[in-house]
């Protein structure tokens, strides 16, 4: 117990008596964590945007004019049961007309030409949303194999196919780029943190030699530095999350304006997830710091 208390005391003394070095070390770790956190948030943001775009894509299955309401509802239920379908909405011909009129309310010429027709030209339709945009082809193929096929006039899948393909290509590219950047940032951060701890220990190398000469065991030399690196990690995680929160708070209005119409709220996301992130980062950065510290001290302990 006395030994443990002394190890904590030495760690604490070293932290305060080398305050500038401690602050610089913390600053470096904060910068490394912030760069990773910023990229993680960027990843969340792109993910939300992509999901939002995907949510807005649906395929319309136009029904033949002789399809009864009952058949259409039955077909809707069947589609709802499909494992790859996330959402199905049956739109009657009247609803379709209403939506059309609402959509083009600013174009009176178009609406008046519609009035010239003696009956509603818009067919009833089923809006199908897939759980993954890549699966639309498969869903439509599956529908084609069922008796419901006879009620289908046409689908607008062909029109959307190019759009969906390009959205898919873009989203997977963006995801890959963000993941690649994240890995790169994590690697750079690991190197920065490792080097920072090494430099910090390097400045203590003569002290380590002296400790050995007066009979300190290797564990007694190592542990205060390890405790100190845990303190560095804890403070760095707190500061980096604090700084990130303040930053998001400051740019919140701009973000809102930029992502208008999309469900993107990074501040809300951070408020809901920060403790999990902080815990993970404390564990991972702490482990990295402890290993760096032990490795760096080992060099002088053995030397």
């Amino acid at each position: 117990m006395t030994t443990l208390f002394r190890l904590f005391k030495f760690a604490w003394q070293d932290f305060w008596r080398n305050l500038w070095l401690s602050l610089v070390t913390i600053l470096m770790i904060v910068l490394a964590l912030m760069s990773v956190n910023t990229l993680l948030l960027f990843n969340v943001m792109t993910d939300t945007v992509i999901r939002s775009v995907e949510k807005n894509i649906d395929v319309l299955v136009y029904l033949k004019s002789d399809t009864t309401d009952e058949d259409a509802k039955k077909m809707t239920e069947e589609l709802q049961k499909h494992p790859d379908v996330s959402h199905v909405r049956y739109i009657t011909a009247a609803e379709a007309l209403q939506e059309f009129q609402l959509k083009f309310k600013d174009k009176p010429a178009l609406l008046s030409s519609l009035k010239e027709l003696d009956k509603n030209p818009l067919p009833a339709r089923i809006a199908v949303q897939a759980s993954d945009p890549k699966l639309y082809g498969k869903i439509l193929d599956d529908i084609a194999k069922t008796p419901a096929q006879e009620h289908i006039e046409k689908t607008d899948f062909t029109n959307y196919e190019t759009l969906i393909t390009s959205v898919n290509a873009i989203t997977s590219k963006v995801r890959r780029i963000v993941l690649g950047l994240l890995i790169l940032f994590v690697l750079v951060s690991i190197l920065i943190v490792y080097n920072t701890i090494r430099v910090s220990i390097y400045t203590h190398r003569e002290e380590i030699v002296v400790m050995k000469l007066v009979g300190a065991s290797n564990a007694f030399i190592r542990l205060p530095y390890i405790f100190e690196s845990v303190v560095f990690t804890l403070l760095s995680v707190i500061v980096s999350f604090g700084a990130l929160y303040v930053l998001l708070l400051a740019i919140e209005p701009q973000l809102k304006a930029f992502f208008e119409g999309l469900d993107v709220n990074l501040l809300r996301y951070l408020e809901g997830h920060w403790y999990m992130w902080a815990l993970w980062q404390f564990a991972l950065a702490g482990m990295l710091n402890i290993l760096s510290s032990a490795f760096a001290v080992n060099r002088y302990v053995r030397g």
């Binding site: 003394q13 070293d14 400790m211 000469l213 290797n218």
Partner: peptide, 24 residues
């Protein structure tokens, strides 16, 4: 190596450059 600290606690050593801990 594990016995070295024990030996050093029983042989006092004084060096030309004092080898003091500067922050203590």
């Amino acid at each position: 190596a594990s016995e070295v600290p024990l030996l050093r606690r029983q042989i006092g050593v004084v060096f030309q450059d004092y080898k003091l801990l500067p922050k203590k």
